[in-house]
Structure formats: structure tokens, C-alpha cells
């Protein structure tokens, strides 16, 4: 589905990612783990096209690495970005309409939005409210649903648990699990290793802009070793 080869990412003159290979197969949930500054978000930004990058990024055998941001979205890349970035002064419903902005089937988009509202009543009850008035967890749900409404081939999730209470984090990860069960292909970036390992099939560990370790989720056990490795804290 998604094939990344020798990817380098630049922020101005600084190289943040030094040539990494990542691949995601259809229906898989792949996680990028790593400490702050390891290059996780940079990698996702390279996939969506918001930073300068070299190397090849292929989505279903098409090189999308040179396409502008909006064309990549049309090819099937959608992201729930770091910090959620909901449109604060737009209503919850309008945020979702923006998520489906590329779709031509406006009638079925409206139906789908209604379906999501019944699935997440907290969003449905606040459909006319500005998205900025939602809580962090609700905004995260909104950002995920907004991304899904473009009917992506692959969903990128950048630290969905960031700044959320443990119960809300558990809720968000239940949603991710359900999405995966429904067949969504997911590339997840997380610092919460324990929760991430539970939903993933395959894991890449990033450190200082390089992949330091990767393998099937089974090889990582319950993540305790990994957490020690990432944080340097003995538990």
C-alpha cells in the first residue's frame, strides 16, 4: 500500500530524518514509536507533503513524493495531525464537510456525517457548535472523523493520545481498534508505547532520524522493554 524508501526530511537547512524505509500493507496498522525529536511527525509531514523531503514515497505503486498537498489527499492520504488542528470557529458539522470537501457524492457525504453523529453522540449533540468549544478528546474524535470522510486509502494519526486523560486515551484507542477491524489501513505515530502496541501489527522505532529497530508487534512483548529503551526509565 505505502512504500517509503530512503526518505530524508528537511526543516530549512536542517535534516530531521536521515534516510529511512517504511512500508505499510493494506489493512495493517503500523506504528512509529520514538522519543521527542526522533522524526516521527517529520515522516508523516513528508507523506502529506507539507515539508521538503527526498527519497521515494509510493502509494499503490504511484510515486506521490512530488505531488502538491491537495493532490496527495485526492490519491487517498488523510491525516489527523498533531495538535488536532480542527477549524475552531467552524461548526462541528462544517469541519466534517471540509473533511469531505473532495467528494462529489455530496448526498452520501451528508448521510455519512449523520451516521458518524449517531456513532459519536458527543459530536452529534454539538454539531452546530464551534469546534473550538469541544474538549480535547472530542476534538481528537472530530479530527479523526474529518480525516476519514475523504475516504482515504491510508489514515495517518499523529499522537492522537497527546494531552488527553487516560480514560479518554483508552476511548481513542478503542476507536482506532474498531477502525482497524473495519479494514482501515493506519499509520500511527505515538509516544504512548503500551497503548500503541495493543493496536499495531508492525512497529518501527525511530531515534535521531533513523529507524533503530523494527519488527512484528509480537517481537516487542508488552512494550516494557521498549518503554525503558525510549525513556531511559527503569520500571
Amino acid at each position: 500500500m505505502l512504500q517509503i524508501k530512503s526518505l530524508k526530511v528537511f526543516h530549512g537547512p536542517i535534516e530531521a530524518v536521515h534516510g529511512i524505509d517504511i512500508s505499510v500493507r493494506e489493512g495493517q496498522c503500523v506504528t512509529l514509536l520514538g522519543p521527542n525529536g526522533a522524526g516521527k511527525t517529520s515522516t508523516l509531514s513528508a507523506i502529506t507533503g507539507t515539508v521538503r523531503a527526498t527519497g521515494s514515497i509510493r502509494l499503490q505503486d504511484e510515486d506521490i513524493g512530488r505531488l502538491p498537498i491537495e493532490e496527495r489527499c485526492k490519491r487517498g492520504i488523510a491525516i489527523s495531525p498533531e495538535g488536532r488542528r480542527v477549524f475552531a470557529t467552524l461548526s462541528v458539522r462544517d469541519n466534517l464537510i471540509m473533511g469531505g470537501a473532495t467528494r462529489r457524492d455530496k448526498a452520501s457525504l451528508t448521510d455519512e456525517i449523520e451516521e458518524w453523529f449517531s456513532q459519536f453522540p458527543v459530536l452529534g449533540e454539538r454539531r452546530e457548535q464551534p469546534a473550538g468549544t469541544l474538549s480535547g478528546g472530542e476534538q481528537q474524535m472530530l479530527a479523526i472523523v474529518r480525516a476519514l470522510l475523504s475516504k482515504p486509502r491510508i489514515l495517518l494519526l499523529d499522537e492522537p493520545s497527546l494531552g488527553l486523560a487516560p480514560q479518554i486515551t483508552a476511548r481513542i484507542f478503542r476507536i482506532i481498534k474498531e477502525l482497524k477491524a473495519a479494514g482501515t489501513t493506519i499509520l500511527l505515530v505515538e509516544q504512548n508505547a503500551g497503548a500503541a502496541l495493543e493496536v499495531s501489527d508492525y512497529v518501527y522505532v525511530l531515534n535521531n532520524g533513523l529507524v533503530s529497530r523494527h519488527g512484528d508487534v509480537a517481537e516487542f512483548g508488552d512494550g516494557a522493554v521498549l518503554i525503558n529503551e525510549l525513556t531511559g526509565v527503569q520500571q
Binding site: 485526492k74 495531525p81 477549524f87 473533511g99
Partner: peptide, 13 residues
């Protein structure tokens, strides 16, 4: 509010 996010939703700049 956030032009880049609009482009990430697939709307042409």
C-alpha cells in the same frame, strides 16, 4: 484559520 489544514483536506490552494 489554518490554510495548510485546508489543503490537507484536499481543497486546492
Amino acid at each position: 484559520l489554518d490554510f495548510e489544514m485546508v489543503r490537507l483536506c484536499g481543497v486546492r490552494a
